[in-house]
Design a protein around this nucleic acid. Structure first.
Lengths: 208, 208
DNA sequence: AAAGTTACCAAACGATCGTTCACAGACTTA
DNA sequence: TAAGTCTGTGAACGATCGTTTGGTAACTTT
């Protein structure tokens, strides 16, 4: 990886009405950059512009400032995680309700382990300000709700839970999250499978 | 918080042979700075010098560069956590082996919730490079070992464990860690007590 | 008192950063 | 063809950064 990303072609402009497309390219470039230099440092306007092959000024047509960029990137990555979990769930036979929950958790772990920089970004920054008293919202809660729904389907299918579905979802997610965090801190990253089985242990723990 | 920390007195020099003292002051200042501007950004050489009331150049007598500074700060904070856990354990009657483990976990959670910036710094950066094959070392493992010892003492005292002490320690720590991470992401930080009871739930889970 | 050591700082270097502003090329409409 | 709009840039601004260099004042030794 040299210092300069690439000088390449002076970039083919987007056509009319496709100005929004650059926004996606910027987010993709930021995502790529975050993979290489993990840690929120280095995620600079100029750096993103460099890896996207555009001028720094061009970013300001889509993001008002750097904070908006990282916020947009965070949303983007949460959306990726969300769809990855849904896709994983969809690949499991719909009769296997427990397997579907496990699949979602596995997908979540794999995402976190494959994208440590993104995961850190997603968990490091607090949620958007919400009015007090109202139901907590935000992308993280959406992810957990996915699990809540999964556990609720288990209960509905006759698989007994030791705790309410909401509680089970938090336990499983928290266990997976913590185990992955421990994984990130371990020098040997070869034991990815053990993370998965650890998560399975947590899941089987909430069933009666 | 104004931009300039304080211009105050031009600082009273340390006496002979007490040059090492500045090192501690630097770490303390860095710790303070990390509390106010949490997030590893802003933890700059110049910023630390500012809050310590010294010149940026003075830092280089104790830390070769910025990386060494944050490494030193990380060690410093891990040591703080370690002693906090030991102190909490010591405050519980030594006959109450389970209570001592719980006290350590509670202390760990409180530290993490009280010092989100420090906690992030400690968990964000991987461990120091260790030769492959050898026992994993590093401050994080030392903290977990504290829990392993605590659970082992439970087993030795006749309190049956469902899993080996090492496993129990990881489960409890991972649960606590994940729950705290979730807490950090929640907008309402008023439910600190619920974190504690959640952790207790994890602990009681590993006992037969 | 002279020499040496320690503790610390002022000033500057080059680099990078976020952000703004005026402007240019491609395309559409009139 | 002329005017207007959209998509993107080049160049510069002030600020901050990490780090180095060459010192100075205080203190200890001789």
């Amino acid at each position: 990886m040299s210092k300069e990303a690439q000088v390449s072609a002076p970039r083919t402009r987007n056509r009319w009405g496709e100005g929004e497309r650059l926004r996606g390219e910027i987010l993709a470039a930021a995502s790529r950059l975050l993979s290489e230099l993990d840690g929120e440092d280095g995620l600079t306007i100029r750096g993103v512009a460099r890896t996207a092959g555009i001028a720094p000024a061009s970013i300001y047509q889509h993001f008002t400032d750097r904070a908006a960029l990282v916020a947009g990137l965070t949303d983007h990555e949460f959306a990726r995680l969300h769809t990855a979990m849904e896709a994983a769930e969809g690949r499991v036979d719909s009769g296997d309700v427990v397997g579907r929950v496990r699949a979602m958790l596995h997908a979540s772990c794999r995402f976190a382990m494959d994208n440590p920089g993104h995961y850190r970004l997603m968990t490091a920054n607090g949620p958007p300000r919400t009015a007090p008293g109202v139901r907590q919202a935000g992308p993280l809660v959406d992810v957990i709700d996915l699990l809540v729904a999964g556990f609720a389907r288990c209960a509905a299918a006759g698989v007994a839970l030791r705790v309410p579905a909401e509680r089970a979802a938090v336990i499983a997610f928290v266990g997976a999250h913590g185990r992955v965090a421990l994984f990130q801190n371990s020098a040997k990253h070869t034991d990815a499978d053990s993370v998965m089985s650890f998560v399975d242990e947590f899941v089987s723990l909430v069933f009666a």
